[in-house]
Design a protein around this nucleic acid. Structure first.
Lengths: 130, 130
DNA sequence: CAGGATCCGACCCGATACTG
DNA sequence: CAGTATCGGGTCGGATCCTG
């Protein structure tokens, strides 16, 4: 029996936490990296450049806890651990890939927009500047 | 002439900022709300329950600065300001809607996963628990 | 190699008070 | 109604050190 449906517009609804998880920078990059099959921890760290040890593990745990990725401990020595998308993780990963593409596709436009931007708070009539 | 292409996997690339913007909770909710046409500031605040005055304005400015929404000041008194998606804002909004749907669709599964989750750090052989 | 634990600065963000 | 400014706590997240 499903609980009450998720409502992102209800501040009390825990689905907001899910929103923050999947919206996080590191989640997005990790999910994109995992798109093509299991990846070892070290590879992840190298792929997602700039992520710290701490955020790597923490984000992986969060994703795992939410059923988005699976952790595979090969129980070898030296340690060898892989992470892979679950079934629903794959569907999310597709969305993340779309996000990535959207950003890449519109990046030039966005940078141009930033250049054009003028803070508006200025109601002054500049009718005759000549 | 377009600059160097965006690379989200380069920590130096400013496109990471874009990622954080569009990934933010409030951006997502605001963009979803704006999907059907111009909305007044007050309506936005009421629609995106729980957002503070500060975060509302701040996020709107960020989205505007990046060319994702347009601000329409009707220059009336009392003040009447509307926000609407730009053309590229619409394409982003569609992605946000997909994200929203994904969360709603998989919410039960996610909650169930959280219930199932067992912290693993436990390498102990529990061979014979009987 | 994988990852837990701790310290600590930076910033995020909410609350509040104020302007036009 | 729309928006700015300021203050302060809480959290995020990086750096570091340590274990198996």
């Amino acid at each position: 029996m499903p609980g009450k449906p998720a409502d992102l517009f209800d501040p009390e609804c825990p689905s907001r936490d899910v929103l923050e998880l999947v919206g996080s920078k590191w989640s997005m990059l990790l999910l994109c990296t995992l798109k093509n099959g299991p990846v070892r921890t070290g590879e992840l760290r190298r792929a997602v450049t700039g992520i710290s040890q701490k955020m790597l593990t923490q984000t992986l745990r969060d994703l795992e806890r939410n059923g988005i990725i699976d952790r595979i401990d090969h129980a070898e020595v030296p340690p060898r651990v892989e992470y892979k998308l679950t079934k629903v993780g794959h569907s999310l990963s597709r969305l993340m890939k779309q996000m990535e593409h959207w950003i890449v596709d519109h990046y030039d436009y966005i940078v141009a927009s930033q250049g054009r931007y003028k803070p508006h708070h200025d109601h002054t009539e500049d009718q005759m500047s000549a």
